[in-house]
Design a binder for these strands. Structure first.
Length: 486
RNA sequence: CGGGACGUAGUGUAACGGUAACACGCCUGAUUCGGGUUCAGGAGAUUUUCCGGGUUCGAAUCCCGGCGUCCCGACCA
């Protein structure tokens, strides 16, 4: 039925997924390397995906009463250093400004790796009464973390994200916020990125520096490794204590506010590339594709046909645009057909309409799906209904495929021998009983490079009895997910 | 931060210590256009080979230092 046309110079995903990934990022026009190590220039096609991401999440945040704001990129070192665990966690990757205005600064300024400190300091001023709570803020901004080893989108020295910061009267209210944010992210990945993630609680050693609890979205990359793809933290009173975020309750008692923070970054785009891409390049889910449909005009012989085809393409373009489809037309007849098709496939446009002399005569268009290359011809009269429906089908099929891939890359084991051989021979997610001791986790990581990824939400209630830890044999408490991480 | 590789037109590569070359891309014109077509001509390195020193009659090439990038490890809320 459908043949996959190989791309010149594009490494096959199955041969070397890392080379393939880098090739796709560059060839699909998502991003390029910048002049500073580990930094990335996000090109229009990549940025457009980010804008789609922003639009969806931002809408949900606002519906819930979260307000956008902006705090400075610079944080005085003294402020940053106030919460001890926090500074210990972030110091190694901090970029610090020591000179400005031609002079050495009296106090160095940190470039934000996250904004808990500056924002909490202001919460102390803004929160006085229980009537001020909850206070929910968010900012879309850039972050700098000087990682030793970088990877386009997955781990860059500077990246874009949103960070939500909220304060609440008590733990219960804060936890509701933590779970709401987590659910937004899960829903976003499922319904917009068409990715089936794992959602759960991080272990104590893997949690955010300064948090009481961290929940995360974990994506299963097709090579069996894990990508932490969004986090939601319950900060308890760890920061509010340090910055004195106190309020008076109804009875006039002074109380410390409870706090949350949650974020999703441009790393998400890396997950999107990894999960759906194939040997022909990027594959975008229709929900977030900057262009959902490309109409390719196929020239016959001579300018006369070209003109007719171009007119016909314009006609179909309008039909689709009126039907609410994000559509782009390609009638650049100076380039050969193969070149144009390959280029649009690399870019990952979910649906291609081929329109030439044949279709013009029959008043049809040929529809080709990017995800499975299935091809069929349809009458123009049906396009306004059929194209949106087909885009939805593609969206659903991509999700199903992601779900199958995730499940196929997850296995349950109960013995250490099995655990170790799986992790060393074939990387994948392992679900196994664990004692929840940090020392045990550290040894597992040392021997297999795999750490805990999360305790799935629906397994938190499922407390084990008489089950030994997969590694140390001590009583296990829950079944956790383990994997090597990106 | 340890180990390795590398740095030459826009990109990818070549050049024994002796005239910096080739392919792709780009421009012009044809040709072709239902899956990266084919051909002809042209521009593009030029205080030329990342930067600074050195050796030499002569350095892209050898030596020293710096900077940077990539790969492998350690690290990575």
């Amino acid at each position: 039925m459908s043949k996959i046309f190989e791309k010149k110079g594009l490494t096959k995903k199955s041969e070397n997924i890392s080379d393939w990934y880098h090739d796709v990022v560059l060839r699909a026009g998502l991003a390029e390397y910048a002049d500073v190590k580990g930094c990335m220039i996000i090109k229009p096609h990549g940025y457009a995906i980010w804008e789609k991401t922003q639009a969806v999440l931002d809408g949900w945040f606002k519906e819930d009463g979260v307000q956008n704001c902006y705090f400075p990129i610079f944080i005085p070192m003294s402020l940053f250093e106030k919460e001890k665990e926090h500074v210990a966690g972030f110091s190694p990757e901090l970029a610090v400004v020591t000179h400005a205005g031609g002079e050495e600064l009296v106090e160095p300024i940190a470039v934000r790796p996250t904004s808990e400190t500056v924002i909490t300091k202001k919460f102390a001023d803004w929160v006085q009464s229980h009537r001020d709570l909850p206070m929910k803020l968010n900012q879309w901004c850039n972050i700098v973390r000087w990682e030793k080893r970088t990877y386009p989108f997955l781990r860059t020295s500077e990246f874009l994200w949103q960070e939500g910061h909220t304060v609440h009267s008590d733990k219960q209210d804060a936890m509701t916020m933590v779970m709401t944010a987590l659910e937004w992210y899960a829903k976003f990945y499922r319904e917009h990125y068409a990715i089936a993630p794992y959602v759960g609680l991080k272990s104590q050693s893997e949690k955010f520096a300064g948090a009481a609890e961290t929940y995360s979205i974990e994506i299963v990359v097709p090579d069996g490794k894990a990508l932490q793809s969004a986090t939601s933290h319950y900060l308890a009173d760890h920061f509010t204590k340090v910055f004195n975020v106190e309020y008076l309750d109804e009875a006039g008692n002074k109380k410390l506010a409870h706090q949350t923070s949650w974020g999703l970054s441009t790393r998400a785009i890396g997950g999107l590339i990894f999960v759906h891409g194939d040997d022909s390049g990027l594959v975008l889910p229709p929900a977030v594709a900057p262009q959902q449909v490309v109409i390719i005009g196929i020239a016959g012989k001579g300018p006369e046909i070209e003109e007719k085809v171009a007119t016909y393409v314009g006609y179909i373009h309008k039909i689709l645009k009126d039907a609410g489809v994000r559509v782009v037309s390609d009638v650049d007849f100076r380039k050969t057909l193969g070149f144009r098709i390959n280029d649009w496939e690399l870019k990952g446009v979910p649906l291609r309409l081929e329109v030439g002399g044949k279709e013009l005569e029959a008043k049809t268009a040929t529809l080709v799906r990017r995800d499975n290359f299935a091809k069929h011809e349809t009458s123009v009269d049906l396009l306004a209904l059929e194209v949106p429906a087909l885009l939805e089908t593609i969206q659903k099929d991509l999700f199903k495929k992601s779900e199958q891939s995730r499940d196929a890359l997850t296995t349950e084991v109960s013995t250490w021998t099995e655990f170790k051989s799986i992790m060393t021979e074939k990387k994948m997610f392992i679900r196994a009983p664990w004692c929840e001791e940090a020392s045990c986790e550290a040894i597992i990581k040392e021997e297999t490079k795999a750490g805990t990824r999360c305790l799935e939400l629906d397994r938190i209630q499922e407390v084990l009895s008489d089950t030994p830890c997969v590694h140390c044999g001590q009583p296990a408490i829950h079944k956790w997910l383990f994997a090597q991480a990106y």
